[in-house]
Design a protein around this nucleic acid. Structure first.
Length: 472
DNA sequence: TGGCGATTGGT
DNA sequence: CCAATCGCC
């Protein structure tokens, strides 16, 4: 009887899982493995994502048991784990779905070569993207560096249709990932999320049925609940981008609805692929600015301000609201991510890598493509990035996109009693209004840690110096 | 997927 | 004085 191993990584689902599908089709018995990897160059997973991963592993272990596949969770060097498993299960073939980070690719290629030279079969399959990064390129056969042509090309391509989940006779489930100790904040995050493949599919259905029509206009308003919130499910592959693509197209046809909103949503999904495109083609995007000239930008060393930013105590309400939402839920609304990142990199002139690291640790959806690529985008050093002179005014942005202050009041309750007029700039409120709202600036709520006008000019000067230097 | 100050043309 | 427009960063 032939046995195959499936090495699961960022693909914790049964449906549209090419590696699992091929293993089940070609072999009588399938054993699934997950490895908490210890390998040089691999970025250790952040704490919030690690929490999500634990839940997701338990979830897929249950689902796999339903089709008679056991999931084993190990820790260590993946090659050693795979060798031991191949021997222990008397298996001859390993399947996995590809990943795209430079370190991961090198690791996987080395394992593949080593196992093959020992007589095992290794099959790598399409990974957690719409299109493999090397299958889409410019007319000059180069990687894309601008999103719009990337998107125009991508939307004309055939995105692989999702594969069905394998079938099988159910077996007994037992918990996996037993060594994980839940952190004290696990219960807090747990209130906000429902984890696993079934939950991910339900989220997509709910989003399409209830929210996608309002997505293009509503997505910029953090108090509105019209974004998909699929990002952490995508991060761990509980749902694949190909499934989202095809489900969204089918929804469009079934409802004869206008293409605009669905199209807008899919273009955001394409941004995700664009990030993986960058991860694949560029060296170490979490550390190296993709626009070389920004290597010379002199970031400020300001640990106290960084700390205030992290903890949501900057004195700028919408910035604080976003960072507290992150701390509380492991997530932050997209518009607010842009605002807090702009405030850190431009107003505070603190290195984007500091912010990227904080997000990496706190976000349940942090992945090694989108988190660094998006930080570089805001900081101005990324591909197709925001121009350096685009500096958000977080007060103006708050008034525009959270005019009623609902988002701020939810996460910054100590200023909730302020009238709308001052909710985004408490320090500007007259003394009697502050007293009536029971607020003492500098005591119950911080005075802004940066003067927006002055720090804006400082950023323009610093960024301008980089551009001028590059023009020499 | 900006902000801001200056200008303009209207009160 | 005001909103709308424009050029620059």
């Amino acid at each position: 009887m032939s046995t195959a191993l499936v090495w699961l990584r960022n693909d914790l689902r049964l449906a549209d899982n090419p590696a699992l599908h091929a293993a089940a089709k070609n072999h009588q018995k399938v054993v699934a493995l997950y490895v908490h990897e210890e390998a040089p160059g691999l970025r250790p997973i952040g704490a919030a994502a690690r929490w999500w991963l634990h839940q997701s592993l338990e979830s897929i272990a249950r689902d796999l048991a339903e089709i008679g596949v056991t999931l084993e969770v190990h820790a260590g060097k993946p090659e050693a784990v795979l060798r031991a498993a191949l021997k222990g299960h008397d298996a001859e073939t390993v399947y996995w779905n590809r990943r795209y980070g430079p370190a991961e690719r090198e690791l996987d290629a080395g394992i593949k070569q080593a196992l093959k030279s020992d007589g095992f079969s290794v099959e790598s399959m399409p990974g957690n993207v719409l299109i493999e990064p090397w299958l889409i390129q410019t007319g000059q056969d180069k990687p894309y560096s601008v999103f719009t042509p990337f998107w125009k090309n991508l939307r004309t391509m055939d995105i692989a249709a999702p594969l069905p989940a394998p079938k099988g006779k159910s077996s007994r489930f037992r918990p996996v990932d037993a060594d994980y100790e839940e952190p004290h904040w696990a219960g807090k995050l747990g209130q906000y999320w429902s984890i696993g493949e079934t939950a991910a599919q339900e989220r997509l259905t709910t989003f399409l049925d209830e929210s996608v029509v309002d997505y293009p206009e509503g997505r910029d308003f953090p108090a509105k609940d019209v974004t998909s919130r699929l990002s952490p499910h995508l991060r761990f592959g509980e749902i694949s981008p190909r499934q989202i693509w095809h489900t969204a197209q089918a929804f469009l046809h079934a409802h004869h609805s206008k293409a605009g909103p669905v199209d807008k949503f899919l273009s955001e999904l394409a941004w995700r692929d664009f990030s993986y495109h960058q991860l694949y083609h560029r060296p170490n995007i979490a550390e190296i600015p993709m626009q070389e000239k920004y290597s010379s930008l002199r970031w400020r060393h300001a640990p106290a301000q960084l700390r205030a930013w992290e903890k949501g105590k900057t004195g700028i309400p919408i910035v604080d609201a976003g960072l507290r939402e992150l701390w509380e839920t492991g997530y932050m609304h997209n518009r607010v991510r842009m605002l807090v990142a702009s405030f850190l990199t431009k107003n505070l002139l603190i290195d984007w890598r500091e912010g990227e690291r904080w997000f990496w640790d706190c976000l349940v959806d942090a992945d090694e493509a989108n988190n660094p690529a998006s930080w570089q985008w805001v900081a101005g050093c990324g591909l197709d990035a925001a121009p350096y002179f685009r500096i958000f005014n977080p007060v103006t942005q708050g008034e525009r996109f959270d005019g009623s202050g609902d988002f701020v009041r939810r996460w910054v309750p100590e200023i909730a009693a302020l009238p709308d007029k001052f909710i985004h700039a408490p320090a500007d409120a007259p003394q009697d209004i502050l007293a009536k709202a029971d607020i003492a600036i500098g005591s119950t709520y911080p005075r802004p840690i940066a003067d927006l006008k002055q720090t804006r000019q400082r950023a323009l000067d610093a960024y301008g110096a980089v551009s001028a230097q590059a023009a020499d």
